[in-house]
């Protein structure tokens, strides 16, 4: 209710320049923080800026970054999915089991991704048509999917050394100096970032998340939008699982525990609102990069692993606090 203030502000402030807009963008701030960290670290450790380390860092977040894409879109539509870690592991396990039972690895992977998409559709059904909350539905699915992983593997990792080279290529190969994993990651990110920014279809995701009622009044089938974003998020988690399988040459039933928190943190640091309606994929990926750079730095600086979680959690808290105050001043 700061009407008076708005009046005087608009009267005094000249037309905003592109520079002002650029500086105001959250992405700019994140890039600045990342660059500062990188510069500081390159002094602290000569190893930090080597291609080997940079490559390792990118590899570390690239596959998870695919999950971040799905999560960001889901968050914008007003949902959330706690099951992504379990679903990623389930994709590995399903793919691995099918392969060990004689399926072609590509077919096995396709079935695994479809199964995860199906799980997403099931969650979407419970959320939109039954009317339950995303949080509780995905919490249940998180536990169920993990249980299925353990059931299918009897709790032991599946060794998949016999995967053909052609398949392992998507997880371990490179085109020139660039790993295939990074290429897939960049393609997924750019594809969805452009769609989310520019396409009319994906604008419905923002409308639905920002005010479901207003969207419904505009004729948008909001339940379908939420159903689809929920499905897409799980499907992308499945894709990530298959890539992990190719990369590790194994399927670990306990893989991805806690991944959902990393993924949600990255999206939120990157500007996605838990209330829905705002966020960008580019921002979310920068959030991922920031968390990854911090992890890598802490490891290089020999900080105890126990401290790493504490520091990462504090960064999340700091990021959302700063954001809260910035957006309050804007209003």
């Amino acid at each position: 209710m700061e009407k008076m203030m708005n009046v005087t502000e608009t009267a005094r402030r000249p037309e905003r320049s592109w520079l002002y807009n650029l500086l105001k963008m959250r992405e700019t701030g994140l890039i600045a923080i990342i660059l500062i960290l990188v510069v500081v670290m390159s002094f602290a450790s000569p190893y930090f800026l080597t291609w080997l380390n940079v490559r390792a860092m990118i590899m570390a977040f690239a596959v998870e970054g695919i999950v971040v894409v799905g999560m960001t879109i889901l968050l914008i539509s007003g949902g959330i999915d706690l099951s992504v870690g379990s679903v990623t592991a389930l994709a590995m396990v399903i793919g691995g089991l099918l392969f060990l039972n004689g399926f072609d690895p590509w077919v096995a992977s396709a079935i695994a991704i479809l199964a995860c998409t199906g799980i997403g559709a099931l969650m979407g059904f419970f959320v939109t048509y039954v009317g339950l909350h995303h949080f509780i539905v995905s919490l249940a699915v998180m536990v169920i999917a993990r249980g299925l992983c353990l059931l299918g593997t009897e709790g032991r990792p599946l060794s998949l050394f016999s995967l053909p080279e052609s398949f392992k290529f998507i997880g371990q190969g490179s085109v020139g100096p660039i790993p295939v994993v990074i290429i897939i990651f960049v393609v997924v990110v750019v594809f969805f970032d452009v769609l989310l920014r520019r396409s009319t279809a994906f604008r419905r995701v923002f409308y639905t998340g920002s005010n479901e009622k207003a969207a419904a009044y505009a004729g948008i089938r909001t339940r379908r939008v939420i159903f689809l974003t929920t499905t897409l998020c799980a499907g992308l988690a499945g894709l990530a699982g298959v890539i992990y399988m190719a990369r590790f040459g194994s399927a670990q039933p306990t893989f991805g525990i806690g991944m959902e928190l990393n993924v949600i943190a990255a999206a939120v640091i990157g500007g996605a609102s838990l209330k829905g309606g705002s966020g960008t994929i580019f921002g979310a990926i920068l959030g991922t990069v920031l968390l990854s750079v911090v992890s890598s730095s802490l490891a290089l600086l020999d900080v105890s692993v126990y401290w790493q979680d504490i520091i990462r959690g504090s960064i999340l808290l700091a990021a959302v606090t700063v954001d809260h105050y910035l957006s309050k001043r804007r209003r």
Binding site: R198, S199, T200, A201, R203, R204, F206, Y207, G209, S210, N211, A214, A215, A218, G219, I220, S273, G277, S278
Partner: peptide
């Protein structure tokens, strides 16, 4: 929709039925 511009709010229904692939 509070997070969306005035212009987009005004044309939300039109955007929804639009055949143009991009905004």
């Amino acid at each position: 929709c509070p997070d969306i511009s005035v212009a987009e709010n005004i044309f939300m229904a039109a955007t929804n039925t639009s055949r143009a692939p991009f905004m």
